[in-house]
Amino acid sequence: MKTINLAESTVRDLNQALHDQAIECTEREWEVLEPKGQHNIACGLDQNISVDIKGPTGYFCAGMNKKAHITIHGNAGQGVAENMMSGSVRVKGNASQAAGATAHGGLLVIEGDAGARCGISMKGVDIVVKGSVGHMSCFMGQAGSLVVCGDAGDALGDSLYETHIYVKGEVKSLGADCIAKEMRDEHIEELSELLNRAGVDEDVTAFKRYGTARQLYNFKVDNTAAY
């Protein structure tokens, strides 16, 4: 295992060392010490390696991740795993706003709470939050799934496309074009699989499903008079 201490190295040096693994993988296991809330830690990785960050991180930690498996042993700042393509990111603490924003793939697990706009404009990532999520979560979500074991804040799933949302607790309010939907067998199956992948033990039957009403997809002919 290779250890890099950010009290001694810069984030740029760390990221360069991790990026070099995409060309030739010389070390599968990495450990990052003393992150102290610095931004852009372990961004843009492109190799099947594991990275354990021992402490709280700043903005965009594990952003644009591909293939790598990154664990943050602390809280994460804004935009953790934003635009992730594949691999996985696990936050042992809480995540700030815009966790998993625009992410296309992979798995993001947040063991604490996530702030506002969790999964904003998500495009295929699966996000599992053991705690609660803040307002405007899944705003303009296009694909993928968001599982919330706690509560959801205001305007959940506003202007939603096709993301699947599962919430166990209370939803403060639903956003435009987001509605509660029936939990059919295939959804129970999908949710079980997501919880299983995330290593979260929850009763799947306690969740409710939310999704798009598909009323904002097309221009409404009734509105032609406006032109």
Binding site: K36, G37, H39, G58
Partner: peptide
Amino acid sequence: DDYVAMASEYQALT
């Protein structure tokens, strides 16, 4: 028990 602190970013609290 000793203080309450606020900051724009966690970095300022470390």
